[in-house]
Amino acid sequence: MDALPGERTLVLDGGLATRLEDLGCDLRDELWSARLLHDDPAVLRRAHRDFFAAGADVAITASYQASVPGFTARGLSRGEARALIARSVEVAAQARDEAGGGIVAASVGPYGAARADGSEYTGDYGPRAGTADALADWHRERWHLLAESGADLLACETLPSCTEAQALVRLLAETPGVRAWFSFSCRDGERISDGTPLAECAALLAGHDQVVAVGANCTAPRHIPELVSGVRGVPAVAYPNSGEIWDAGARTWRGARDPAAFGAAAREWRRAGARLIGGCCRTTPEHVRRIRAHLD
């Protein structure tokens, strides 16, 4: 895509894994939804299509937790692993074409997602793995695969640290013509997971002409207005979780999942400055349908 529309708000999809679980998929696996790129790409295509049918303009691919090391650890060859990462874009593009149009954003999940240890919500990767050089080296192969996949743009999402964003900007510079948004996991209405103010991260990223938006995802909805209002010099992106809270001890979600309230809140996020709006964990096609209705 050449640019984001000036005043028009793009509606992103919702929680892909949530939709897959609602369709009967068991995602209790370190590869999470990426496992289905090998086992059942047809159900991924259906989930993408369901979000387009609900009114989404953008599908985010199932590559968030995909990596060459993750697939080869399951016995696949490097060539097979690389093909599966590219397949994430192919499947979303098929759903887009079946829906009659839309945008495909290739998901670039953080290093912590591949570790499957929760560190994508802290950015605590250790003194060696957590440097910009080390993170750029780790991301590079998947980045280039997705950059050359035919996706409309890359979605650098759930980033817990400003250092990881800086590493990905280096890779963005290696792929001229590719555009990306940068979305962070945030601990409150001001700071991303590692404690850096989101406004500070946005200021660092806004000077790069390949960056199309900066904002927050996988974050409590109540924090979104304050977070996106601090983004300057670049459009804001916002796709929070449903507002429910994960109880790790009981291994269950606490709170109500209310698509109507979520959709209504999207108007406030737009007033605060968001121009790309959708949902993350625990949001469904119904959440997207409500967003579309309220924003229209």
Rank of each mutant, 00 (worst) to 15 (best):
H139D: 01
A73R: 15
A260M: 11
L31P: 02
C201E: 12
A220P: 01
T131K: 13
H208E: 15
A47I: 02
P197E: 11
Y64A: 04
W32T: 03
L27D: 04
S88P: 06
V11T: 09
G79Y: 05
I103Q: 07
P176T: 12
V11E: 03
T196F: 03
C162M: 14
R140N: 02
E141V: 02
A165D: 04
I245P: 02
A167P: 13
L204M: 15
E120T: 10
A3L: 11
P197S: 03
R267T: 15
D50E: 15
Y121W: 12
T163P: 07
D209F: 10
L227N: 04
C201H: 11
A202C: 10
A265L: 05
A93N: 13
E7G: 14
S149L: 00
A136V: 07
I291Y: 00
R96P: 08
L31D: 02
T158V: 14
R282C: 00
E286G: 08
H208V: 14
A236F: 02
R96E: 10
L153A: 01
S161R: 04
V89Y: 05
R28I: 01
A73E: 15
L295M: 03
H287C: 08
H287F: 08
A265T: 03
S229K: 08
R82Y: 12
N217E: 05
A86P: 08
A238C: 06
L159K: 01
I60V: 15
A147D: 09
A129H: 09
D117M: 13
F51R: 07
T18M: 01
P225S: 01
D29Y: 00
L27Q: 03
L135E: 09
D152T: 09
E120P: 12
V58F: 07
L154H: 09
H294Y: 02
R282S: 04
L84Q: 09
D194K: 09
V234P: 04
D133H: 13
G24Y: 09
M1P: 13
A203W: 09
D188G: 08
G126Q: 09
F182R: 07
R82P: 11
R49E: 14
A206L: 11
R78N: 05
T219H: 08
E244T: 11
G102Y: 06
D22E: 14
A129K: 07
A151N: 08
A81H: 06
G243H: 04
E90S: 15
H287Y: 04
G207N: 06
D2S: 11
G109R: 14
R179L: 05
E21R: 15
C25N: 03
L31I: 00
H223T: 02
P5L: 09
V288L: 00
A56C: 10
G177N: 06
L227V: 06
T284G: 08
R74Q: 14
T122P: 14
R251A: 15
I60L: 13
V211M: 12
A3E: 15
E157A: 05
D26N: 13
E120G: 11
D133P: 08
D117F: 12
G126C: 10
V91A: 10
S107P: 14
M1Q: 10
S161N: 04
G233P: 07
D258A: 11
L172H: 04
P240F: 01
V104M: 01
A220Y: 00
G243F: 00
A261Y: 03
G207Y: 10
A248D: 15
L172G: 06
T252L: 10
A129C: 02
L10R: 01
Y239A: 02
A136L: 06
A59H: 00
G70H: 09
R222D: 12
R254G: 03
G150H: 10
A265V: 04
A155W: 06
